[in-house]
Each structure stands twice: as structure tokens, then as C-alpha cells.
Design a binder for these strands. Structure first.
Lengths: 170, 170
DNA sequence: AGTGAAACGTTCATTGA
DNA sequence: TCAATGAACGTTTCACT
């Protein structure tokens, strides 16, 4: 479903991904040195990983506070019964997707139907957004969990990359 | 609190950050072209942004499914009254930080004391982790919100970077 | 998967605004 | 103080092996 990558990821691929996660400015030569292969091999591997959709893009992590988005909240949404499936649900989701403050949308079973993660400048803006969400047709109730302090927020702990185990794909 | 950056971020800085978010392999020269400044200026800006902690690091986004971490869950934790502040709370948090599956930890007010986000390979592993968490001294109850489908998951919508407004810092 | 060479990008000391 | 220049150096890319 998620990738069009052909073949298996081997140890080399995973090592490359890990090194690039740590620092995507690392030169191909130095990655090659660590693996005892040539830079051009690393280059070809990275191209393949990009084409296969394994590597989405090269990017930077930056301090979100420069955007003044200091308020993080989670919102549980219960949908109206008529919006639990089909077109009406799709419409709810597409409206949520179009909101810049909405960073995550997950389907859940209990106690909500959808769980969102949002970032806003402050609590007043958050209130506005919640207002917008609750007036979306098909949204029955919203339940806000306002966070007061972020202790950890990381996309993935890439240290995990090392178990080459059964990473197979068709 | 969060950065040691001296001075203000100007339009140029924000443009650089946005371009690097989109593609951190963009050459300094081509960013410079778009801003009508020289590559060396871009270079110095990026150095300054790195040193100031605005740019955390250069990295890649990759498909998490290669790590077989397909299960996303959120866990609300209520702490025992004795662990609501101080050393005991710090110990709970440091145990949570050390768990590879725990990707986010937020303090909240209601209805939980802490909200976690986790990724695991499958629901069985999740159950194990929940077991581990619930036996941490100071954890009173855990409430799991299991997600069934990820619709959106993005660290930040960097398209937001453009309002140069009142982005001031001391 | 490696080699080697050309093209390209980065870095920095120097100079000027 | 900040940006531009230009040259030295390092990296990427690609045709060929």
C-alpha cells in the first residue's frame, strides 16, 4: 500500500537510511567508507530508495517556536452516525486535511472516531479552530485534550534501525 | 527557553528554512538565486541558524513501515498523587523517555496527567508496552486509544512559513 | 559494484559597501 | 556589520568497466 519499492532492503540500505536520518548532509564518501563501498554505490542506493518511495525527501528539523506555534492539543472527534462511513466521512476528513493547524488525523475505535493533533499559536486560536471543527457537517462532538508542556516529540527513534530481521517486501 | 539565537529572524532566514524543509539538498546557489543574494550569504545564514539552534539538523523523512512499526496508539496516563510533582514524577518521565516505542510525551491537565504517543510493530507488542508502563512506580492508570488508520501525520506544515509578522526574539 | 573524470557545490579569506 | 567575490577544495554524477 505505501511503497512501490521493488526488492528487499538490505543491511546497506538500512545503514544509509540511519546515517541520513542522523545527518543528511553526510557525504556519500564518508558513508561509503563506513560500509567499505564506493560513493557511487551509496549514490545509486539513495536514488533507488528515493524512487521507491522509501526516502520521502531530504529536509531539516527546525525549532517550531519560530512559527509561534506553542500550543499543542489533541482533539477526539465523535462523528454523527451518518458520517461514520462513505462520502460524508470523506468530506469531514478533507475539511480537516485543509486546516493548517491540523497535523495529524487518526481513525480510532474508542472512545472517539477520529483523533487529531493540532498546533496553534495560543489557546485563543485553538478555541477558534475547535469552533471551526465542531461546525463541520458530520462532526457530532469534540473533546479537547490541551497539553501544558511538551516533554518529548520525535517523529521516529531512528536508533531503532539496526534489526535487519524480516524486512521483506514484494 | 528554547533557543540561544541572537537577533531576529528576517524574511531571508524564513525563506531559507522553508526551502530547506522542502528539500534540504537544494544548493546554496539556487536558494541564493531565488533571493538574489550570493551562495556565501546563504551559507552564513544557515551556519548562524544551526549555531543558534533554529535548525536542529539535516535529516530525511522515510517510510516508517520499513521498520514494521505499523501500530500507532495514544496513551493517557493518570499519575498517583504522590507522583504529580517532584522526584517521583521525574522518575516516571525518565523511564518513559527510555522506551523506544514512546515517541511523544505531553503534560496535560484533563482528563489525564500525561499523554503519550507510541509506535509498535503490532497490537501484541503494544500490550506488552502498556504492561510495562502500568507497572512504573507512580503510574496510577493507563487509558489506551488505539488507532486503526493513519490519515495524516506530519511534523509541521511548513507552508505556514511566510507570515514574517512579529517573529522577534531577544 | 567500482573507477575515474567532469560538473557541480561548498567554504572561506579577502574585499568592498 | 553585512554581503559579494573568487579560488581552493570537496562532493556528486555518470559513462564505462
Amino acid at each position: 500500500m505505501s511503497t512501490k519499492f521493488k526488492g528487499n532492503l538490505d543491511e546497506t540500505d538500512l545503514f544509509i537510511i540511519k546515517r541520513l536520518c542522523e545527518d543528511s548532509n553526510t557525504s556519500l564518501a564518508s558513508i561509503g567508507d563506513e560500509l567499505n563501498v564506493s560513493p557511487s554505490t551509496i549514490h545509486k542506493r539513495i536514488c533507488r530508495l528515493k524512487e521507491g518511495g522509501i526516502i520521502e525527501r531530504f529536509t531539516i528539523l527546525f525549532d517550531p517556536s519560530i512559527l509561534n506555534l506553542k500550543t499543542i492539543a489533541f482533539i477526539g472527534i465523535e462523528l454523527e452516525r451518518s458520517a461514520l462511513v462513505g462520502k460524508k466521512k470523506d468530506e469531514v476528513i478533507s475539511k480537516l486535511l485543509s486546516m493548517q493547524e491540523v497535523l495529524e488525523i487518526h481513525e480510532t475505535l474508542e472512545p472517539f472516531d477520529l483523533l487529531l493533533k493540532l498546533r496553534t499559536e495560543n489557546v485563543d486560536f485553538l478555541r477558534e479552530i475547535i469552533g471551526d471543527i465542531s461546525t463541520i457537517e458530520g462532526v457530532h462532538t469534540t473533546n479537547t485534550i490541551l497539553t501544558t508542556k511538551k516533554i518529548l516529540e520525535t517523529p521516529l527513534k531512528y536508533e531503532t534501525i539496526k534489526d535487519l530481521g524480516d524486512i521483506r517486501r514484494g
